[in-house]
Design a protein around this nucleic acid. Structure first.
Lengths: 173, 173
DNA sequence: CAGTATTTTGAACGACGTTCAATATGTGCT
DNA sequence: AGCACATATTGAACGTCGTTCAAAATACTG
């Protein structure tokens, strides 16, 4: 709070007329970052070559992380105090991001049933998220050789290649 | 530091005879947690039914996260100040965890070349990590319906099912 | 210009990580 | 036992942080 206040040339107390506390300020900032990330992914999804969309989305995601590592880190590393939940518009923003990816990948995931498709996209998004957090915190580099982006492509491409009925090998027999 | 000191019945200053600062204390704690997580995964990997090992590992991972959410959160959310890197034994602990998973999954990933197998395991681990962080921070629940564990199984099973040559669809044609 | 509403201030509070001289405790020796 | 020395522990103090709030400054209105 003190650093933000100094940056904008105000006394610390002034910020409390705009935000309840530091958490509220960060959540508002994260809302903007979420919108920017969503827009970056949407722009990448306009590729005409639908087969290239999965890798285009992965590249757009990592481009964003590399372009704005601090904003991205705050967006996903910040945690509200116990018991306080994120505002509704935050959920809407996240849902819009996922929906955009689902729509963009629809051509290459037409074999999936609707519900499973969305679940799969969420899983892939979480996978990219995990790779990025480990990379940003310096823990991925301890065990991975290639760039984080490469692992991102691996996750997304193989999950899509596996198709909707993959897994559950115990069902076979 | 003050809370730890109070818990063990010492003055704050005493802790500085054992650790340089709070970061060093947390890194030491994280070393223990990493060992515990590694042991839990190793125990799950002893399953005789090799086909069930992937799901057993996923379950063990999420069991650990649910059993020790705070320790797990500190292990992976803590970040050293800029420029300071993790000690060597930390890297070794992480590498041991990955190596254990690679060894446990060897029977079901025998088709993979060695290097690719390890990379794939790292990617799956990062995927589980991403699911867990989003779940713990309350952000996964905003867009996912099922339990986090389900997404973990999805990622691991489909990546294994996809096989070593999946992805890179642009290579075909 | 007077009076009211709004914005901004900066001192103050409690909590935090950290430092360090002072103090307490333990250990080995005669 | 007492003494000298090493080690462990303390607690006050410092600077920083988020946060509060009465006071001061500014803006607006009739």
């Amino acid at each position: 709070m003190r650093r933000v206040a100094e940056r904008i040339g105000y006394a610390p107390g002034t910020l409390y007329n705009l935000f309840d506390n530091l958490d509220a300020l960060i959540v508002t900032l994260n809302g903007e970052t979420l919108g920017r990330l969503s827009a970056a992914l949407a722009a990448a999804a306009t590729t005409g070559d639908v087969a290239a969309r999965p890798s285009a989305l992965v590249n757009a995601y990592f481009d964003f992380v590399e372009a704005e590592p601090q904003l991205w880190a705050v967006l996903f590393e910040h945690r509200l105090p116990e018991g306080i939940s994120l505002p509704d518009w935050y959920r809407d923003g996240l849902a819009a991001l996922v929906d955009g990816a689902v729509a963009a990948l629809e051509p290459v995931m037409s074999a999936w049933p609707e519900a499973s498709r969305r679940e799969t996209v969420v899983a892939m998004w979480a996978g990219l998220h995990g790779i990025s957090t480990l990379a940003v915190s310096g823990k991925l580099g301890l065990v991975a050789t290639g760039p984080p982006r490469q692992l991102g492509h691996l996750i997304v491409e193989r999950i899509i290649a596996a198709g909707p009925t993959a897994g559950g090998s115990f069902i076979m027999s």
